[in-house]
């Protein structure tokens, strides 16, 4: 059985590798175990609920399946929550923060957006129970795909560089303290057995180690074709096979190359992280069922998490 002791799991990886799929599967997996689970996204819209044929949710989290809640982070609403409910500065928010010029300034100040995102997670982890009477056992963070995705963890040192004072500093300090807590916070990286994701994963893992002072808990290698292959099976096509497709030999050769490349990059990934980070291989489910729906995919992945040794 797949096991992560940390309460908060950040799921990182570039767009297109299946980050949202893995985040959703992890959420579903923990919810199924009876843990109260929340999946947080920071995206254009909620992509998780539609997987289960539910209406997309907004910033306010909603339980879409038993024990499984979903939310899509909205920086502006968080800002309001922060000043009005958290710092009790209602008038200040109304006259200062709602000023359009000031809104722009807040967006522009490097790192503030990310700080508020992490601050919101801090609130859920540490304060929600006391202030609102609810608490999640597991929080899965589907990190933003580009840009701030990996910059997320650099924000704390950035803020402390500014020699700041006031509430933002205490915010940054406690967020930093939370991120430092190995027992509470962990990261996982999602990748594919392909050239660019392979190169990017190496860079991303490096960056996580630098910023978080620890390795990711695991790497999910998604859409593995090697998963199905008999060990020691030779990877070379014989002429007999090619001749069956005589006028389409070139198409077959391309598909063959494509497939072998996927096997190659799976080996490269495993080799690179060998004995340093656990690599969890997940199969390319299309090869079992080409018409598989997103919901079926999630359930199948959860089954595999349960069987994981």
């Amino acid at each position: 059985m797949l096991k992560f002791d940390q309460k908060v799991i950040f799921v990182l990886g570039k767009g297109g590798v299946g980050r949202t799929t893995i985040s959703t599967a992890l959420g579903y997996y923990f919810a199924k175990q009876g843990l109260k689970t929340l999946v947080i996204q920071w995206a254009i819209r909620d992509f998780v609920s539609p997987i289960f044929d539910k209406e997309p949710v907004g910033h306010k989290h909603k339980e879409i399946l038993p024990n499984l809640s979903v939310m899509n982070y909205d920086p502006y609403i968080t800002l309001q929550e922060y000043f009005v409910e958290h710092l009790h500065m209602t008038l200040f928010f109304k006259f200062i923060i709602e000023n359009p010029q000031v809104k722009k300034l807040i967006q522009a100040a490097p790192g503030l957006d990310e700080l508020f995102f992490l601050g919101r997670i801090f609130w859920l982890v540490e304060l929600a129970k006391e202030e609102r009477g609810y608490e999640f056992d597991k929080i899965i963070v589907d990190a933003p795909a580009t840009g701030h995705g990996s910059a997320l963890f650099g924000v704390i040192s950035t803020i402390s560089n500014f020699k700041l004072e006031g509430p933002l500093v205490s915010e940054a300090t406690r967020v930093a303290k939370m991120l430092d807590d190995h027992e509470k916070i962990g990261t996982v990286v999602v990748t594919l057995p392909e050239e660019l994701p392979y190169e990017e994963t190496i860079d991303l893992v490096d960056l996580i180690e630098k910023e978080m002072k620890r390795k990711p808990l695991a790497i999910f290698l998604n859409k593995s074709v090697y998963w199905y292959l008999k060990e020691n099976s030779h990877h070379n096509l014989n002429d007999e096979y090619l001749n069956r497709f005589y006028q389409f030999k070139n198409v077959i050769r391309s598909l063959d190359l494509d497939l072998r490349r996927k096997i190659y990059y799976e080996h490269r990934t495993k080799e690179f992280f060998h004995q340093t980070i656990k690599t969890i291989i997940l199969p390319e489910l299309i090869l079992e069922k080409p018409e598989i729906t997103p919901e079926q995919k999630i359930k199948k992945l959860v089954e595999l998490f349960e069987l994981y040794e």
Binding site: Y228, S233, H234, N236, L237, L255, D256
Partner: peptide, 8 residues
């Protein structure tokens, strides 16, 4: 469980 050709 598959030979390479079956996989292809």
């Amino acid at each position: 469980s598959l030979e390479y050709e079956e996989l292809l």
